[in-house]
Simulated assay, not measured.
Amino acid sequence: MTKKGILLINLGSPRSTAVKDVKEYLDEFLMDEKVIDYRWIFRALLVQGIILKTRPAKSAEAYKTVWTEEGSPLIVITKKVQQKLQNLVDIPVEIGMRYAEPSIEMGISNLVEKGVKQIVLFPLYPHYAMSTTETVIEKAEEIRKQKFPDVRINYVQPFYNRDFYIDCLAESIREKLPENFDALLFSYHGVPERHIYKTDPTKTCNMNDCCYKDHHPSHAFCYRHQCFSTTEQVIRKLGLSKDKVIVSFQSRLGKDKWIEPYTDHTLETIPGKGIKKIAVVCPAFVSDCLETLEEISVEGQAQFLDAGGKDFNYIPCLNDDDRWIEVIRTLCEEQLEQFYFL
């Protein structure tokens, strides 16, 4: 039988908190046309001519606040997930990052060196977006065709609405919810509104009520809908009323319009509406990273408290929770079985 393997893909991280390493990472990340989708010349002018002049130093300071003795939290957590999954399956498991090291190419190469010819590649993103799932698949296919033409890859699809994932996420949140809170805030990573339209092959999305319609043709590609769907299903599992739940989107870049409402604006305004005690969860991320540990837990908390909030509770990502590892195994096994039908 053809040997099979699993490759887990996460976003990536600078190799250190040194400004030069952060600059190198941001250059690769922001110059991806799936992240900043301008024509190359305009993207280069923005990223290399403006952003990389000042942002690396600021980002390096932010990374220092979350860096551990073992290194980048995202890399450390992904390695723990790899090891736990490896303990559950009898085929090789490797990791790769869309940006920086270990690269996707390195991950595939490590599997090929172990005799693997069929790979289940798992982009560790619950929701579909051109700047996450789409760019991972596109990069992996480019590498496969150029370097590993004899390798076959099956991709784990977005799992934002799978029951066993929702159960896992809901239970993780339930265990960490404070006894008294005015609202549970779901803060998802934001994307520019134009990305929603670009990723919709059906051209039926109107960025309005279609997110809430049943079986709308754009849903399989609509990040906005998928975030709302995850929220709705989780709060149903938790038995929460909708008036105790808020959805917002964080991490916007530049002056373009991103999907709303924005997390920073939300945190600054809700205390004035009587919401003084909140819990915050970030389901777009499966691993804690700069965007959760610093942007939300540090900056977001300060914004909320400065605006009159009294109690801020950040609920960690799934990280290496054993229930999450079981979800990963189940999703990978589904794709492993598909090799038998090809």
Rank of each mutant, 00 (worst) to 15 (best):
T2K: 12
I6G: 04
L8T: 02
N10T: 08
L11Q: 03
P14C: 00
K20G: 03
K20N: 05
D21P: 13
E28Q: 08
Y38T: 01
R39I: 14
W40L: 03
I41G: 02
A44E: 02
L46E: 04
V47H: 05
G49Q: 09
I51F: 07
K53P: 03
K53H: 07
P56K: 12
A60C: 11
A60S: 12
E61M: 11
A62P: 05
K64Y: 01
V66I: 14
W67G: 03
E70S: 15
K79N: 13
N87I: 02
L88M: 09
D90N: 08
R98S: 02
K114E: 01
V120M: 07
F122G: 01
F122Q: 02
P123L: 08
L124C: 15
Y128L: 00
A129W: 12
M130Q: 13
T132V: 09
A140S: 12
E141A: 08
E142N: 15
P158D: 00
I166W: 12
C168Q: 09
E171L: 14
H189L: 11
H189V: 08
E193S: 08
C205S: 09
P217I: 06
S218L: 02
H225R: 04
E232L: 13
V234S: 06
L238G: 10
D243N: 13
V245T: 04
F249I: 05
S251E: 03
D256N: 13
Y262K: 04
L267T: 06
G272T: 03
K273N: 04
I275R: 12
V286I: 13
L290M: 03
E291Q: 11
L293A: 05
E295C: 11
I296Y: 02
S297V: 06
D306T: 10
D306C: 10
G308D: 02
N319H: 14
W324S: 07
V327R: 05
L331P: 01
C332R: 12
Y340I: 00
L342R: 14
